[in-house]
């Protein structure tokens, strides 16, 4: 039963309406940790990349000097690596428990891109250009999958090069010096890509675009309203109805306290990220 999202009466879709569980507690905690450590690494690393700017010099002093910035950077990096490894371990352990290995790579809940994602990209662009209906997305959209794999790529590139630079004496036992030159280059460039991407594209896609402005609290509350489910994830909704599993994921609406907490965490993060982008743009222009 494909109900066009726009036909749904809005009154039914308010904060108190029907909700479905989208992210469990561990997902949300991991995203929270990833977010905090990512911002921590960005803010302590960026001053080095634009060290000739007065703001970087004052900000570095505010952080307590380069040694304390380095300490914060490494603590954040270590926690981030633990979260990353923990996530990967969790995916494999969950799959091992359920035995559904094929679904891990080839199901609607898989992060692996598939044919529908290609069709969705084309359909979404057609919609952008006013030449068709908006695609009905499933549980994970193509841009969410890109974000997800970008983190994987970034973890290997930035995390790997970062470990090299953190423990140079250990790695120099079996790696030549030029590897550190490469590590230094890619650590900074890839970090710029990651920071630039998360604080602009991810923020737009996930939070600040007109439908969600100023932010989408789902990653903190874990629950998505029926209205938004139909609007943004119609294919998932239809699938859950067809499988008779919709009722199983229904959840009470997030309490006002939880919603307030979501905004209390999310808004400062969006603001901090936007300020960071402004500083990067300023530093590369002037």
């Amino acid at each position: 039963m494909a109900t066009p999202a726009t036909a749904l009466p809005r009154t039914q879709a308010g904060a108190g309406g029907r909700h479905y569980q989208r992210f469990d507690l561990l997902d949300r905690v991991m995203h929270g940790l990833l977010m905090v450590t990512f911002i921590g690494c960005a803010l302590t690393g960026l001053p080095l990349m634009v060290a000739d700017h007065a703001w970087a010099q004052s900000f570095s002093r505010m952080l307590g000097g380069f040694q304390s910035a380095m300490l914060i950077h490494r603590i954040c990096a270590a926690v981030m690596i633990v979260v990353f490894v923990g996530h990967v371990a969790r995916v494999f352990l969950d799959t091992a428990r359920s035995g559904k290995w094929l679904e891990m790579v080839w199901g609607p809940n898989s992060m692996v891109p598939n044919l529908k994602d290609v069709q969705d990209i084309a359909g979404h662009v057609r919609w952008f250009l006013g030449k068709g209906e908006r695609p009905r997305f499933d549980r994970y959209t193509y841009w969410e999958k890109f974000d997800y794999w970008a983190v994987f790529w970034g973890m290997f590139i930035i995390g790997g090069s970062g470990l090299l630079l953190w423990f140079p004496f250990f790695f120099a036992q079996f790696l030549p010096g030029w590897v550190f030159n490469i590590a230094m280059l890619v650590h900074g460039e890839e970090a710029l890509l990651a920071v630039g991407f998360i604080f602009t594209i991810h923020f737009f896609n996930g939070h600040v675009r007109p439908e969600k402005f100023p932010m989408d609290p789902v990653i903190f509350t874990g629950r998505i309203s029926e209205h938004e489910m139909l609007d943004e994830r119609g294919a998932e909704y239809d699938r859950l109805v067809a499988q008779g599993r919709l009722a199983a994921v229904e959840a009470p609406p997030p309490s006002p306290g939880l919603r307030a907490l979501a905004y209390a965490i999310g808004i400062p993060a969006v603001v901090l990220g936007t300020v960071t982008i402004a500083l990067i743009v300023y530093s590369f222009l002037f």
Partner: peptide
């Protein structure tokens, strides 16, 4: 080092161009 640098430049340019355009089109349409 030279080609790694070029690759990184290309990667940054590519990602920001594609998603920049994607974002602008989406914003206007939204």
């Amino acid at each position: 080092l030279f080609f790694t640098g070029k690759f990184m430049d290309f990667l940054l340019l590519g990602v920001f161009s594609v998603f920049g355009l994607h974002t602008v089109l989406w914003f206007v349409r939204s």
